[in-house]
Design a protein around this nucleic acid. Structure first.
Lengths: 139, 139
DNA sequence: AACAAACTCTTGACTCAGTCCAGAATTGGT
DNA sequence: ACCAATTCTGGACTGAGTCAAGAGTTTGTT
């Protein structure tokens, strides 16, 4: 996803294009599953400085506009990724917390319909696989 | 799950039986998906007083010993439930955050094997259905 | 029943992700 | 270039959850 693409995506949605926003998007693309703090570090290395607040605001705007996705496995802080619109899930290590993307084995939209929907209008089924990564298994 | 059952379960695992622990377990049974704070309130109404710390410790011990389960949907604080050992999942409202239990439509262990396990030893596939509850849809 | 060892609970300070606010700066349409 | 709308900064604040050390309970043994 190059900068021109991002710029276009922002304008399409009526959002202003700023150096901070471009840098945040670059950071998310460069570090899938990074935390807000890690992204702040990365953005600072790109454009010198940015406030914590601007990063949170920007991430919030991007999530609202479906440009990025926010995930938050139990016991972890929020993480962000730029893969949106596809049906992928996450594999989380109980030891070190590292996150991998996985595609579900049983097709495009696994389990999208629950047995009893309680009258809900369901729009997403999020799957998290829990386990131990090779490193933590041997450690 | 009566108190004798709980007492037995604790002793079986080499855990001491205390009024606080029994009360915490009762509270979790009485309020599935409650937060630590809500549980603290409930426990206080049962045994008069308990420290925040004792509640967190107790919940932690119970989770470690598989007596209760801790869930934490994105954007929510941790919640606890006493349904363990079965294969049920959760339906969360994006509006008010209310949580319902659901059984998965496609069988006992949906999607338990990911396409690419990255060498992980996977022990659980957690599914969260996101949507809007009837109240929040009309509101 | 009494003892000692092990475990559990209380209190209070602390951490850290995330939010709130108000004023300053930047952006984009005219 | 100008101005209204939007965005960014800096700092104070919130609230869930953790840490630590001493006091209090529980339990197995006598």
């Amino acid at each position: 996803m190059d900068d021109n693409g991002v710029e276009h995506q922002l304008r399409d949605r009526g959002l202003q294009v700023t150096a901070q926003r471009l840098a945040v998007m670059e950071a998310v693309s460069a570090h899938p599953h990074a935390t807000a703090e890690e992204l702040t570090e990365d953005v600072r290395s790109r454009i010198g400085s940015i406030s914590k607040q601007a990063v949170y605001d920007t991430l919030g705007v991007f999530v609202e506009n479906n440009l990025i996705r926010r995930i938050q496995p139990s016991g972890s802080v929020a993480r962000y990724e730029d893969r949106v619109g596809d049906n992928h899930h996450h594999l989380v290590c109980r030891g070190c917390g590292i996150v991998f993307d996985v595609d579900c084995a049983v097709g495009d939209t696994p389990c999208l319909i629950a047995d009893d929907d309680h009258g809900f209008e369901i729009d997403e089924a999020e799957v998290v696989y829990w386990g131990r990564c090779p490193t933590c298994r041997t450690g």
